[in-house]
């Protein structure tokens, strides 16, 4: 059942350190999953609606790491509001068993593991808080 879960594309995403950073405490927005203790921090800024300098720090599982890397990748340098909405729609689709464009298609096997959906969603909570009110 888990054979497909940790496939090469997903593991490559989880190990993608392009936007990973050693963010000091108090930087950006941090969210926790109280059930497992995972913690995600996202930092970045908006310049005329464009997401810039997106960085993340994840203390979490491979799914959470991969989701954070994917989210940073699709946000950085893009119109933040539209890119986040597109990513949100894609991840909701893929977790419901539907289709999604890359990189979100890598998460298709997670659909049948409902206990792991929050692992994928945690970075979204951080980014939404980061950009809330902007």
């Amino acid at each position: 059942m888990n054979d497909a879960l940790y496939h090469d594309a997903l593991m490559a995403l989880s190990k993608d350190r392009t936007h990973a950073a050693a963010l000091p405490p108090g930087t950006g927005v941090t969210v926790d999953n109280p059930l497992c203790g995972d913690r995600v921090t996202f930092d970045g800024k908006l310049e005329k609606g464009i997401a810039r300098d997106i960085r993340h720090k994840v203390r979490g599982c491979a799914l959470c790491q991969a989701s954070a890397a994917a989210l940073a990748r699709v946000l950085d340098g893009k119109p933040a509001r539209a890119a986040l909405a597109d990513a949100q729609a894609a991840v909701e689709s893929v977790l419901a068993g539907g289709s999604a464009p890359a990189p979100w298609d890598a998460f298709a096997p997670v659909a049948r593991h409902k206990s792991r959906h929050d692992c994928v969603k945690l970075p979204f909570s951080a980014v939404k808080s980061l950009f809330s009110g902007t």
Binding site: M1, C36, G37, C61, H113
Partner: peptide, 27 residues
């Protein structure tokens, strides 16, 4: 990560627990 370990162990029929086990101060 413990959850990833537990997920893969489940494939082998092994039931484990991963996480902070409701003991966050200790972790």
């Amino acid at each position: 990560h413990p959850h990833d370990i537990c997920q893969i162990m489940d494939r082998h029929g092994v039931a484990l627990r991963g996480g902070h086990h409701c003991a966050q101060p200790l972790h």
